[in-house]
Design a binder for these strands. Structure first.
Lengths: 348, 348
DNA sequence: GTAGGTTACGCAAACGGTTACTTTAACGGT
DNA sequence: ACCGTTAAAGTAACCGTTTGCGTAACCTAC
């Protein structure tokens, strides 16, 4: 009863029926080699004995783990939470398991997890790099072994891996264009480190908007740092202390915008009256925050599931070695901030 | 170069050095059997060849997967996102990998994932059940096989598994007590289904608060449903339509409270003026929502890491079969709602 | 100089499946 | 009556580690 009942194996079923384990294996997989009534009997005994296939053994033997490694910098951030949920869903639909690793925005931790996932012999990897990842060193072994990897959201260049990203440049461009249209001229950007893809591209979009408007950007209005709330607060403080108080701020992420909101309040500044705000990326709760932030919506679930689909495709056809780049368009969602001049057009 | 370079194995290293793979295996694990310089040479060749241990083979052989299965109903919900992050962190610190499964609040999906995780031969399971899970059927195989499992937050009774939960009863009691102290008498509860542990216990706390105050509860003010935002909106509508408009509402979760907020606004009611609100569970963004909700704080990360610790303990000492019940206390965090009569004491 | 004890390693059998190759038996056509 | 075909099942090797046991060689002590 309470004894340590060893797991049931194919051999147990085989012995019980007086046939070989090969036959049992084939029967359970519905292989045409096996007769109908044998299959039925095998299935019955398997159920009776409570047989649970050992995937570890199966994986070792077949040299495929039906497992994909997921590496994200953080999970308690709605973008990643949503993306991860979508990734899990489409993986699950296709018979893959997810081994999750959180790098905690630390490049070294990320490298360690990558190593472990390789040891786990994952069939593929889905990665969004940390805000600290500057070198692609840790990813070299992955490439050497030819293991499919797809970057999503935050990518690394020069490795030849496919990617699914937000249209950062034009998303940022639209946002800043919108701020310019609101009549602001002193528009700051509190963004991400220049070595991160999203930091770089969102800044490009910011610059492009000025360029298109035929205006020069004031470099003192650009503050680059991390992607968290504290970085946003610090960013605004830096701007204010430098005496270059902006009329509006475009932030690289939603948490950064909240940090700005927080710091602004502490300084007695009212958003959006004294200082206006647009964020790249939103949150499910945005409609409840006050003031609700106008933001560049990045469809996290779509990015997640597209990335997973791409990965599955690369796992299935290892030949097609073409590096694919999927770019997901964004939408500017108008809310209470940056909305003095109600413009009904939600530009894309 | 681009060839499909087969993975390096122990045998490869052994051949290269003219020793047995047993020796290599032991050398890499720093087994005392092996001499110092042999170990050094093995390690050098391993690095040179880019050896990556095959955990699948290791796991099959050692009959331990160093992997734990995590089943949550949802991940895009700050409580679970936080808990999962903490779980991953403490698992990682202890050399365990996490295989994540999202049941999407669906009992059948949950059962399927459990089955798969058993096949993956996880060393243990961490589960928070769906709001639909009524029977413990799917968990029977887990118990039969004696696989350690720890429930967290949402638990199932009668299976003898350990658990780490929020102190739902007294958390709810404090919240409702606070509302009563604010002078409200018509306090509604929009809660979870009675077959869920948190739904049941938070309701108990609600009742207890009335009991302690020597008042009777008006059963018409209790609406039970799911744990999502839509359930909250629907709950308030139900209450309003029934003509029993409450003065205040105590909700079973934070999303439910947001739903109430939403529905109240749509009906032209102002929170907290026309209808006051306290939620069980908070959100990192709560301070930015307007009005910020007074809530019963449940330390998600503590719950997550305690649950993981407990599981690790049960994995290490399979004998200790005592069902442990860890109850994490809550704190009532006073914010803009339910705060007309500023009471500086943040009761526990 | 030999019994007893280390030290450093090798051998081979697991672990629980999968799979390429045989084998057996039944059947049908000519 | 013989041969080729095919359906149904068996054999054994293999996937890459771990592990219990065996065994040289060497050391020490009496």
């Amino acid at each position: 009863m309470t004894e340590t009942s060893r797991h049931i194996t194919l051999a147990d079923i085989a012995r019980r029926l007086g046939i070989s384990k090969t036959a049992v294996s084939k029967a359970l997989r519905d292989h045409p080699d096996i007769g109908a009534q044998t299959k039925a009997r095998v299935r019955q005994i398997a159920a009776e004995l409570g047989y649970t296939p050992n995937f570890i053994a199966r994986n070792l033997s077949s040299r495929r783990s039906h497992t994909i490694g997921l590496v994200v910098p953080k999970i308690a951030h709605s973008f990643f939470a949503d993306a991860v949920e979508a990734i899990h869903a489409t993986a699950s639909e296709n018979g893959y398991e997810i081994i999750m690793a959180v790098s905690q925005e630390d490049a070294e931790t990320e490298a360690l997890h990558l190593q472990t996932l390789l040891s786990m012999r994952v069939d593929g990897l889905l990665v969004s790099v940390t805000q600290q990842t500057r070198s692609s060193h840790a990813f070299e072994p992955v490439r050497r072994r030819g293991i499919p990897l797809v970057f999503f959201d935050r990518v690394l260049d020069g490795l030849g891996f496919s990617r699914v990203v937000t249209d950062d440049v034009s998303g940022a461009l639209n946002a800043v264009h919108h701020l310019l249209q609101q009549g602001y001229s002193r528009i700051a950007h509190i963004g991400g480190f220049g070595w991160t893809s999203i930091g770089r591209d969102r800044l490009s979009g910011y610059r492009l908007a000025f360029e298109k408007a035929g205006r020069a950007v004031d470099e003192r209005l650009i503050v680059l740092g991390g992607f968290g709330q504290s970085d946003g607060a610090r960013g605004l403080q830096t701007l204010l202390e430098s005496g270059a108080a902006p009329q509006a701020v475009f932030t690289a992420t939603y948490p950064v915008a909240l940090g700005v909101l927080e710091a602004a309040c502490e300084c007695g500044l009212c958003v959006p009256r004294d200082i206006d705000l647009i964020a790249f990326g939103g949150s499910a709760y945005n409609r409840f925050v006050s003031p609700s932030l106008t933001y560049v919506d990045q469809p996290a679930q779509e990015i997640g599931s597209r990335a997973m689909q791409l990965l599955l495709q690369e796992i299935q056809e290892p030949e097609t070695h073409s590096e694919q780049r999927v770019v997901i368009p964004t939408t500017l969602v108008l809310c209470e901030t940056a909305n003095a001049n109600p413009n009904p057009r939600a530009s894309t």
